[in-house]
Nucleic acid binder design. Structure first.
Lengths: 120, 120
DNA sequence: TTTGCGTGTGAAAAACCCGTGAACGAGCGT
DNA sequence: ACGCTCGTTCACGGGTTTTTCACACGCAAA
């Protein structure tokens, strides 16, 4: 089975569930518990940070537009002056890098948006 | 065995019983006897305080939302203006701290709720 | 080089959340 | 009626999170 972009589609994305856990190597996301873990130890994320990470992880390997993220995480329409997504991606990257230095999960696609990639 | 969230599930939570005793180091909760003990000496808790402590302790290490607590302890729906949970958490903390100074059992998860943690 | 666009990011501003003292009323025993 | 306890709600101060702003940097085209 494939997604609209031709790539693999996760169960979570398929059934539109944002409570399904995600496992990305040493990183584990448990939306139902409001928690993200690295090697079993909890990351301290704010609600928005966890929401964004969850949304990105549920669509791993797919480039998500700011429009999409704004819609799904913030529940509002995206305006070009709105930098919230960028700011939160930055904060997520910082926290993920403190927990798993050197590893890069969130990739920028200039002019389009961001992509979450579990593999090194 | 695991709960709906994938985490460990206590016997009490499993059988949906709020009468099962809980042991958390020097703290002991005996709902069936309407009593909580520290080093064998009874804590003087009101009914609501004991209910709340019991509910939290039966879900140790799990973040419980105000919604959940309101539902299970008060048997009513949570409204954002309802501060009962916070007030009772405060009173519980005060009494627990008088009995076991310095120890912190109930942790705040901003924007979500509270988590009971038996370990120091 | 200059201009424009897109992004990263520190920091200020705004909004929101939480801890807690206090007030109030209901219920109860005296 | 009185005093007491308990449960609920309100209000305010302080803390945290979210949003917004401003500027810097890299890159590509003119």
């Amino acid at each position: 089975m494939e997604g609209e972009n031709g790539g693999p589609l996760s169960i979570a994305a398929l059934i539109g569930d944002d409570r399904t856990p995600v496992y990305a190597g040493r990183l584990e996301i448990r939306p139902a518990e409001h928690a993200a873990l690295v090697d079993g130890r909890p990351l301290t994320l704010t609600v928005r940070e966890l929401q964004l990470l969850t949304e990105l992880a549920h669509n791993a390997e797919r480039v998500m537009t700011r429009d999409e993220l704004c819609e799904r995480v913030w529940g509002r329409n995206y305006r070009k002056s709105d930098r919230s997504v960028d700011v939160y991606v930055g904060r997520l990257r910082a926290k993920l890098d403190r927990a798993l230095p050197g590893r890069r999960f969130i990739h920028t696609h200039t002019g389009i948006g961001y992509r979450f990639s579990p593999q090194a």
